[in-house]
Amino acid sequence: MDRDTIWAVIVGQIREVVPELADRPIAETESMAELGLDSIERSEIIMNTLEAIGLDLPMVQVHGPKNLGELADLLHAKRHA
């Protein structure tokens, strides 16, 4: 699974959880907090993404990214570890 696919999954999950963002461009430099997502929404998006890309990891292993691009990088690395 390439990084572009993982990025598309992340964006899709964000728009699933917050339908109001459907038409808003989402940049890799933005964070979920900057998009106005609360902590429960952030967790749901990450869990949904993990499941969608077939990664069964403890949430603590995906803490750390400062923005969505870094999250995509991390998930891509985990997926191919």
């Binding site: 429960i40 967790s43 749901e44 869990m47 949904n48 993990l50 499941e51 069964d56 403890p58």
Partner: peptide, 9 residues
């Protein structure tokens, strides 16, 4: 079958 993906809510 997927207990690690229970929605946080």
């Amino acid at each position: 079958g997927r207990p690690n993906f229970v929605p946080p809510r």
